[in-house]
Design a protein around this nucleic acid. Sequence first.
DNA 1: AATGAATGAGCGTTCATTCAT
DNA 2: TATGAATGAACGCTCATTCAT
Lengths: 191, 191, 191, 191
Amino acid sequence: MVRERKFSDEDLFLATKELLLDYGYEGFTFGLLAERLGVSRSALYKYFGNKEELIMEFMMYELDQFMDKLRKINDYNRFEDQFDYLLELLMNHPQIHQLIEIGRHVPVNNQKLKEKNDKLDGLHLDMYQSLVGFVQQGKGEGKLKPHIPDTLIVGYILQSFLVPNFAQIPHSEWVQSIKEIIRNGMFTDDH
Amino acid sequence: MVRERKFSDEDLFLATKELLLDYGYEGFTFGLLAERLGVSRSALYKYFGNKEELIMEFMMYELDQFMDKLRKINDYNRFEDQFDYLLELLMNHPQIHQLIEIGRHVPVNNQKLKEKNDKLDGLHLDMYQSLVGFVQQGKGEGKLKPHIPDTLIVGYILQSFLVPNFAQIPHSEWVQSIKEIIRNGMFTDDH
Amino acid sequence: MVRERKFSDEDLFLATKELLLDYGYEGFTFGLLAERLGVSRSALYKYFGNKEELIMEFMMYELDQFMDKLRKINDYNRFEDQFDYLLELLMNHPQIHQLIEIGRHVPVNNQKLKEKNDKLDGLHLDMYQSLVGFVQQGKGEGKLKPHIPDTLIVGYILQSFLVPNFAQIPHSEWVQSIKEIIRNGMFTDDH
Amino acid sequence: MVRERKFSDEDLFLATKELLLDYGYEGFTFGLLAERLGVSRSALYKYFGNKEELIMEFMMYELDQFMDKLRKINDYNRFEDQFDYLLELLMNHPQIHQLIEIGRHVPVNNQKLKEKNDKLDGLHLDMYQSLVGFVQQGKGEGKLKPHIPDTLIVGYILQSFLVPNFAQIPHSEWVQSIKEIIRNGMFTDDH
DNA sequence: AATGAATGAGCGTTCATTCAT
DNA sequence: TATGAATGAACGCTCATTCAT
């Protein structure tokens, strides 16, 4: 009964993700996105009322997916296992932190957007609490140093995956090293 | 005899720095800069052919200054002292990494720009090598774990200062904790 | 056997009228009209080639209806009765003049439209002549001042109903006053 | 020291006036205006922050000029003379009423605009009061019929000059007839 | 007959950049 | 050296219009 769409939501969200990471919020334009999808700029407005809305929807889509996986951290009882699971997860979603930062740049002008933003904040909070919960479990088990602020630990772990791997170190080695730094730092023990 | 310039390079670069950090690359405009300097937009074109060039020049200026200080790391013989000096330095230039990231967003369109970009890459390399030298000294002294890639160590240290301090942890405590994570990780020793 | 239309011409023209009066020619959009009719925008194109055409058709429909009533003016023999009938009629179609003005804004781009426009002008002429006929009858009966141009009299009567009633004078009083001005002017007789 | 302007404010306001009358508020575009002035659209933004502002400024300019002349109505003592002066004035500014109506369409979004709007409302009020004063003087002198609402008299006089002169009746005759209708209506006295 | 998908022209607006003085 | 005037490309967005089902 009707023409077939030239692009799926997945296509669009994937392109959005790449462009956002490459150009940031300001640098992201409908022109860029439309070009990448092979459609006209105006076509995008059929699905998203405006730029903010598009990015908000994308953020929710992305965070939703991430949260589904993050919540599975509670399938593990021991902190060590949770830690392994978390790092594995972050490895596969290395830019989640960066995306969230970009999301903070979205100006919230109207009611409709405000609702989306609140929903997004909710997801954000979920994630944060999930991670703080994990940190506290670690401290409770005596595994994490108690005097380091929770927020620093959380931020640090997220940030770790943003270190650019210029020298193209093989992935597994890179991750192993990150894990080790997080666990035991960079310094040897004989100090 | 000749009219005096209404603004110095220092003024200009300082304003540029603040604006870049506040608004990002896309948000940075000649209008903002001119306004802050109290001159007309077109006046800026006497000194910088275009926006990219201006930012490139600024980057070089900034990196140059930073490198002058970074090179002083060699005034110290012991790795531990170098480490302390480096962290102190980074603490006072927390945005150096961020600025470099912004610099990466500058599109390189023409030859002239390409030359500047290469020059900047050169400085970048200097900095990188200086830091890698420091890392190797640390490894040589048996202080740094030898199996962690040099580039990861360098990147990690730089990145550390970008973890956002949302919870407003006092600065000295925050820095101490960062140092400790870098040195000895987040985990306790009883493992 | 065939699918039934989801909206009648009457529905459509009524909606068009309201929207035109509310939003003017520029503010009138297919989107608004489609929404009010509960159909898709593209459905409208089955019946009207384009926006201008639609408005033209509407104008003709509207003028036709009005003319049917206006022609009844000839049911009356005496000018006075015709005058009363006319004012009554205009009172009940106060926007007819306004709609005609809006109609003038429609750009006539192509041949097909030009034909419609000519047809509309024809109707317009009918109306005009009908009114001029009325005026001449008035002059023939010695009721209307012979030296005032026919077209001014016609235009004036039509225009009278467009004076905005900002002060919310009650309708009957307003109309009575208009009638009086038309008949005997604003000035008292003692001059 | 600087390039010469390609158009004066007078040029611009004149073009604005014509376009507003031809196309209405919605139909008026920067593209149209720029084209008529022979400059680029963006050049206009040097002088007017946005469309609303431009139209507001124009309105004030236009009303200011009109008010300067309207105020001179008080140079005359007798109502009859005032009446003659007023009609003469309106003849030379036939669209003033129409322009004000268009002015009402301008959406007032921000503070700066609100101020301009208030100023405009002030001018508007001046004009209205000036005219109502004139009407009351006429009633006081027993020249105007006391039972016709002031606002209708004012509106009617303003509206009179909007009757389109399709038949191209010579100007002086047209005006004389309008005057007569206003004074003594369309009807002869023998009724 | 009717639909949702898509396009393209145009709008208001911003901004880097060039021009003429 | 510095300026205000002007341009043109691009942006976010709207809407009449066409397409394919």
